[in-house]
């Protein structure tokens, strides 16, 4: 059994969204309380986060976009580019620290200090486009992580598996012409759910054709459909790609209790996701994986799902 790293920083709570916003600091507090209550925290190797150097942000995001976001926070504007993207003066620094936490987790895994790591970070990242904030996301944490793996550690092929209930439009678009990053996403069908992308026919462009795979799930559907689609869509494409490193966009909002979505995944259903993914990770990268928190908005169920996810990582 390997060691599992864990990224959390009190400063992640400083990104304050408006009252009643689902992507709130309480999400992380709930996760920390849940992990402590489950007795898991002591068995995790704490990894200290540091703000990411801007040059890593620039591997994915346009410099003008980065500056515009920093300015919006400095001016104390209530939101950035859309009313969904609620911000405060500390949001920019918190977003840098979220990316930095992911990069530190990658360092720890690549230097064999830990086998794998979970990053309890916010703001989330998978909706963030190269030059646009969307869906509560500002910097694309996993996308930057993939570039970091390639440029800092000369990793060639990175696979990003995204099981947030919303399609990771940002991640898909950032890599849609890139055959060195395979993006797989399973999410609620785009005709019903935000952001309206992630249909089966979106498979990448030019050199990236075939390096994007989407499994849309119709609302009301749950465990059986997830099992079926993961087995038929993810498993063979993952094996064919044969990644050197794996990153997870871990969203816990497909659960039946989470009002953010119409899918009905059960708590046990999340174990199907965990088991399928970690089996693949175990046989391809020897259990090395960095999992990054995206969504998950039901404060009762979120900590439980995160704890179950981490337990499976610890068993790798």
């Amino acid at each position: 059994m390997g060691t599992t790293g864990f990224v959390f920083d009190e400063r992640y709570l400083q990104h304050q969204t408006f009252n009643g916003h689902p992507e709130c600091a309480e999400r992380l507090t709930a996760i920390m309380d849940g992990l402590a209550g489950a007795g898991l925290l002591d068995d995790l190797v704490q990894i200290a986060a540091e703000p990411a150097n801007q040059r890593w942000i620039e591997t994915v995001h346009n410099i003008h976009y980065i500056m515009k976001f920093e300015e919006a926070c400095m001016w104390g504007l209530p939101d950035f580019e859309h009313q969904d993207n609620s911000i405060c003066r500390d949001s920019y620094n918190t977003a840098l620290l979220a990316v930095g936490g992911v990069l530190k987790a990658i360092d720890a895994v690549m230097k064999d200090e830990v086998k794998n790591a979970f990053c309890a970070v916010r703001p989330p990242g998978h909706h963030a486009e190269a030059n646009q904030a969307m869906g509560f996301c500002y910097f694309n944490n996993v996308a930057i992580g993939a570039r970091y793996l390639q440029q800092q550690y000369s990793v060639e092929k990175v696979c990003i598996i995204d099981f947030d209930v919303h399609h990771g439009n940002g991640t898909q678009h950032i890599f849609d012409t890139d055959n060195s990053v395979f993006y797989y996403s399973i999410h609620e069908h785009p005709s019903f759910a935000y952001p309206g992308t992630g249909r089966e026919f979106e498979t990448g462009f030019s050199t990236g054709e075939g390096y994007t795979k989407n499994s849309p799930i119709l609302p009301g559907r749950g465990d059986d459909e997830y099992r079926e689609r993961l087995l038929t869509d993810l498993v063979p494409t993952f094996k064919e790609f044969g990644p050197d490193a794996v990153l997870l966009s871990a969203g816990f909002d497909a659960h039946e209790n989470d009002l953010m979505s119409g899918t009905n995944l059960s708590t046990e259903g999340y174990e199907i996701i965990n088991d399928t993914i970690f089996d693949l990770v175990s046989s391809s990268t020897g259990g090395r994986v960095v999992s990054v928190l995206e969504g998950g908005y039901d404060l009762q169920i979120l900590p439980l799902l995160v704890a179950n996810h981490i337990r499976k990582m610890m068993a790798l």
């Binding site: 689902p22 969904d84 909706h127 935000y194 009002l259």
Partner: peptide, 10 residues
Amino acid sequence: LTNNVISIKK
């Protein structure tokens, strides 16, 4: 045109 539907649903 939002991702934030929880309070509207409630």
